[in-house]
């Protein structure tokens, strides 16, 4: 048991994180053409609305929520100390959990049943959707069955994650967790590991820079000041394709 725990909660997270970073960067560098959300709205534009919108808002809020508790456990515990605020906090979390769950279910069914969509679906799409579905399901179960998650996450899991970050893993708290929660944790690292190999990479290239960009983009293949200047014609840039 011990060695299994060691593997699952110490080795596996490090493996997952390494594969995530190496994989994502390697894929971006070697084949950024493949970085795409591969939207399928073009082939089926109606049902998709009822899946994609609840799913994305759900998963975004959940992700940010988990991140926040991980980063600021003290703040969260302080907020949760008032029962009303705790219930509000958990309620919001659970609502978005259900929203993500329902949304993803719609998307999953749509992807499997629509003939046109089968043409743009590969094995990894199914794998990642199934894993995600399972993960959200587990998450909702944890939220219902092991109250109050936001507090014990802050108290017990956040330190565990931080211990991983600090390269000094301590897994006592995790090992004592119920099996559902353990699965949820393993699921999280599995998703991280799979990201570089799936269409989920699209969230890594979310276009926030649009906010700061001017609307029109003009590109010059030459520098207009230097192009007619014979002295700069043979400058020494190291060729990239040689």
């Amino acid at each position: 048991m011990n060695s299994l725990s060691d593997f699952l909660f110490i080795a596996y997270p490090y493996i997952a994180v390494s594969i995530f970073f190496v994989g994502a960067i390697w894929r971006y560098k070697s084949n950024s053409f493949k970085y795409s959300s591969l939207s399928s709205q073009f082939l089926e534009g109606k049902t998709v609305f009822w899946g994609i919108v609840p799913f994305h808002f759900g998963i975004l809020i959940l992700f940010l929520g988990h991140l926040f508790v991980f980063l600021f456990p003290g703040k969260v515990l302080e907020w949760n100390s008032d029962p009303m605020r705790l219930i509000l906090h958990e309620g919001i979390g659970f609502t978005f959990g259900v929203s993500a769950l329902l949304g993803l279910t719609v998307l999953f069914v749509r992807r499997i049943t629509n003939e046109r969509l089968q043409m743009v679906t590969n094995r990894m799409d199914i794998v990642i959707e199934a894993v995600l579905l399972l993960q959200i399901l587990l998450g909702c179960w944890v939220a219902l069955g092991y109250r109050w998650g936001s507090s014990w996450f802050a108290a017990d899991l956040s330190p565990y994650l931080w211990s991983l970050v600090k390269l000094n893993p301590s897994i006592d708290a995790v090992s004592a967790m119920p099996v559902v929660i353990k699965l949820h944790i393993i699921g999280a690292f599995t998703i991280l590991l799979l990201i570089p190999f799936t269409r989920l990479v699209h969230f890594l290239v979310a276009p926030f820079h649009y906010m700061w960009r001017r609307y029109q983009v003009v590109m010059w293949n030459w520098d207009k000041d230097r192009v007619r200047n014979p002295r700069t014609a043979w400058q020494s840039t190291r060729p990239k394709n040689n």
Binding site: V205, P207, Y210, Y215, V217, V218, M219, W220, N221, K224
Partner: peptide, 14 residues
């Protein structure tokens, strides 16, 4: 061009 969030579309200056 103006609508592309990624900035993938551009007008060639030349």
């Amino acid at each position: 061009v103006a609508s592309c969030p990624s900035g993938a579309i551009y007008k060639r200056g030349e």
